[in-house]
Design a protein around this nucleic acid. Structure first.
Length: 749
DNA sequence: GTGCCTCGAGTTCC
DNA sequence: CTCGAGGCAC
């Protein structure tokens, strides 16, 4: 504490620090890539000790130093989690030329470009490998992470250091930067590796992609070292200084920094040039020597990319133009029924195993009964109107190279005794009625809480990634615990009482199949770690219909805590009930009313039904607050309210909540943003940016964007042509500004 | 009323 | 990844 503040500007100390760092990293690299390190262990330890001393004395160095802890660390039994500085998202897909033209249209519309302006894109082969994010600090590779779920990946730094195409040190790089690219294996290397594997009696890999994935995800980097992995860099994430202004310039700079980049990357003006380059790449596909599964098209200008931003799972500025899927014929041996967490009955095709696109497929989704019948929801024929029957010869493909689907049926080979498929009208798991609502494509089990299949699926959802994501408690363990009579998990709360019950149970978890002392300890710890849970994750985990990841986040941001949320929903309950009754009343009226007066009649009936319910004013206010949220309307509101009002469901939720410490939402960057926490409404025409863009910018700055003006509105941004909203805002005395006012308000924040 | 745009919920294989 | 459908803009 009484230490003299160190003089950070002391050049000698800086120099020594970075010298030591370089030395240590070099030694570490040798440790991972060569059999005989050039530096003695004792010297390494001394250098490391001195380095840590400096870090201790100079907090400035701490950020860089955190990365060093892994040096010389023993092989661990699991990869560490890494949170990406910028999420690694997947791409939207295009399957034909029109999709590419539509992509161009949407991009230009979002940017508000005029018809005649041609936008520049880049097009490059989409390598069929694994994406990897490389972090460099002061020109040194300090971290390599897999994509994972896009937000968090696995730390595979030691393995990445063994890949020859990945420079470990680069000159003239920005202070901090992340490089993204694809790890893959060439055809020739793949064949040779498999030959070696077979010779050594090891298992061979199904395809180069799996071989690359299997090689990179080795806990012992010594196993990865001899594997012939390669790397193409294709993107850069700005964390300190700028590297380039366009995508094509980025590629050039990456190449200059010492990365391998794909030689087939081209700048293309407009969609037709992208399509031409796609055809060009497709023609060369078989001669490339490595697998590609399409062409990635990106908006070239990085500033425009930033303006376009992201949807929930994909960037708006890029699309993957996929090659046509590989097809294969096989026999459909039968059709099984699965029951999902919402009770949906889903038919699944059991197939005679067949290789499609390098993978053996034995199941395929059949979606729903209309799909099997060969008609879509409107009764229009699909697959030429052919139905699918057990015993048929069917053609399968992997949609988007992932999900197996049935493309066609060979009627000439249909067995004479093949019967048309009929989806059961009772749940195969619990025997309850399975009902298909009008206008719905899916038949659902009505068993609710009594259906074991639904209960298990809900639990699986609860522990899934994006929800509670409990390590060591996956789908298989859930199945096991659900059936366990000594230590059952039948509802989410049971997960959090498991350790206590185990302590008092005669039949201990430990010593059972697959459970040793360590794994039990790890499981209990993983569960404890998740008692503290962000509100949005809890909401998503509950598995309430229509409340997914995004609605969970929106609700969390709106109500800020579990208690305010439940209180608001309880308060709104009478209004929700009234709404539901009004829906019912409306439905009976719909047939009776004639076309002309239907609208008026419906409103009349609704109002009457609501009036009859005698809803307290604060209930109406709470309900309107809920369904007035952006992205949440009556359907979601009723589903939420229904779950909280249902006695059994609510009791289970309360039991769960009692076990948890729910993290309240901390409103973000209130200080730095002029509109944080404010509710903004846009109306009229925007000139300088489109409304979608304005909304995205406002939300990024922490504002809530609403569609309608109310007492809660803080600010109205009115462009030319603003009508009733502007009038209402004036009446309510809400601050109103024009587009220029808006732009100067948010400035360059 | 209609047509986008997203989200939610379903699915497979490693 | 795909499909259906909810939400919202036009």
């Amino acid at each position: 504490m009484a230490k003299t503040p160190p003089d950070i500007s002391n050049e000698q100390v800086r120099e020594e620090f970075f010298e030591l760092q370089t030395l240590l990293w070099a030694a570490n690299r040798e440790y991972h890539t060569q059999d005989s390190p050039s530096i003695a262990d004792a010297d390494f330890d001394a250098a490391k000790r001195r380095y840590l001393e400096l870090v201790d004395a100079f907090p400035e160095f701490r950020k860089v130093a955190t990365q060093l802890s892994a040096i010389g660390a023993p092989v661990s039994d699991t990869f560490a989690k890494v949170t990406h500085a910028v999420p690694m998202l997947s791409l939207a897909n295009a399957f034909d030329d029109q999709d590419i033209r539509d992509f161009d249209d949407k991009v230009r519309r979002y940017l508000g470009l005029r018809d005649k302006q041609v936008l520049r894109y880049t097009a490059e082969p989409k390598i069929d490998g694994l994406s990897l994010s490389l972090r460099y600090e002061n020109g040194i590779l300090v971290q390599a992470a897999t994509r994972g779920d896009g937000e968090t990946g696995e730390n595979v730094t030691a393995n990445a250091r063994t890949i020859a195409d990945i420079p470990y040190r680069i000159e003239d790089a920005p202070t901090v930067m992340e490089i993204r690219g694809e790890v893959y294996m060439s055809h020739a290397d793949f064949e040779a590796l498999n030959a070696r594997q077979a010779e050594a009696g090891n298992k061979t890999f199904a395809n180069p992609r799996n071989a690359a994935a299997g090689s990179l995800r080795q806990l012992d980097a010594a196993v990865t070292r001899p594997r012939p992995l390669r790397f193409f860099a294709y993107a850069w994430v700005e964390l300190s200084d700028s590297l380039a202004d366009t995508q094509i310039e980025t590629i050039e700079r990456l190449a200059a920094l010492g990365f391998r980049t794909n030689p087939l990357t081209r700048a293309c003006d407009g969609p037709e040039e992208m399509l031409a380059h796609y055809a060009d790449i497709e023609a060369q596909r078989s001669m490339l020597g490595y697998d590609i599964d399409g062409v990635v098209c990106k908006v070239d200008d990085l500033a425009l990319q930033r303006r376009l931003g992201f949807r929930s799972t994909t960037p708006r500025w890029a699309i993957a133009h996929k090659f046509p899927a590989e097809l294969a014929w096989t026999r459909l041996e039968g059709i099984d029924i699965q029951v999902g967490r919402t009770g949906a009955l889903s038919p699944v095709a059991r197939l005679a195993p067949v290789t499609v696109g390098g993978v053996v497929v034995s199941n395929a989704t059949l979606h729903n009964e209309d799909y099997i019948a060969g008609r879509d929801a409107d009764g229009n024929p699909i697959r030429g109107g052919k139905d699918i029957r057990a015993g048929d010869r069917v053609q399968v493909y992997r949609a988007g190279d992932v999900i197996p689907k049935v493309a066609d049926v060979d009627l000439s080979q249909r067995p004479e005794d093949a019967e048309p498929f009929v989806l059961p009208t009772v749940c195969p798991e619990c025997g309850s009625d399975a009902v298909r609502e009008e206008g719905d494509a899916i038949r659902r089990c009505t068993g609710g809480v009594i259906c074991p299949a639904q209960a298990v699926e809900r639990l699986k959802h609860f522990v899934a990634r994006g929800a509670f994501d409990i390590d060591g408690l996956g789908a298989r363990q859930i199945e096991m615990f659900y059936r366990d009579d000594a230590l059952p998990i039948r509802e989410p709360a049971d997960i959090f009482t498991l350790a206590a019950r185990d302590a008092s149970s005669l039949s201990k978890l430990q010593n059972r199949d697959g459970f040793g002392e360590k794994s039990v300890e790890n499981l209990f710890q993983a569960i404890e770690d998740k008692r503290n849970i962000p509100l949005d994750r809890l909401l998503f985990a509950l598995g309430i219909r229509h409340v997914g990841e995004v609605a969970g986040k929106d609700l969390a941001r709106h109500y800020l805590g579990w208690e305010p949320l439940t209180k608001a929903l309880d308060k709104a309950r009478p209004a929700a009930l009234a709404w539901r009754m009004a829906d019912a009343a409306e439905a009976t009226e719909r047939d009776a009313a004639t076309a002309e007066d239907r609208r008026a009649r419906i409103k009349e009936v609704r109002d009457a039904a609501i009036a009859q319910c005698d809803v307290p004013e604060d209930a109406t206010a709470a309900w309107n607050d809920l369904i007035g949220m952006d992205g949440i309307a009556a359907t979601v509101g009723l589903s939420l309210s229904g779950a909280m009002a249902n006695a059994e469901e609510r009791a289970a939720i309360d039991r769960l909540a009692a076990e948890l410490a729910v993290q309240n939402v901390v409103p973000r960057n209130t200080a730095s943003s002029p509109v944080a926490g404010k509710t903004v409404v846009f109306t009229g025409t925007m000139q300088k940016m489109t409304r979608a863009e304005a909304k995205a910018r406002a939300e990024a700055l922490g504002a809530k964007v609403s569609g309608s003006v109310s007492k809660k509105t803080d600010l109205l941004v009115a462009g030319p042509g603003a009508g009733s909203k502007a009038k209402k805002a004036t009446e309510l005395g809400i601050e109103t500004i024009d587009e220029d006012g808006w732009i100067s308000l948010i400035g360059d924040a």
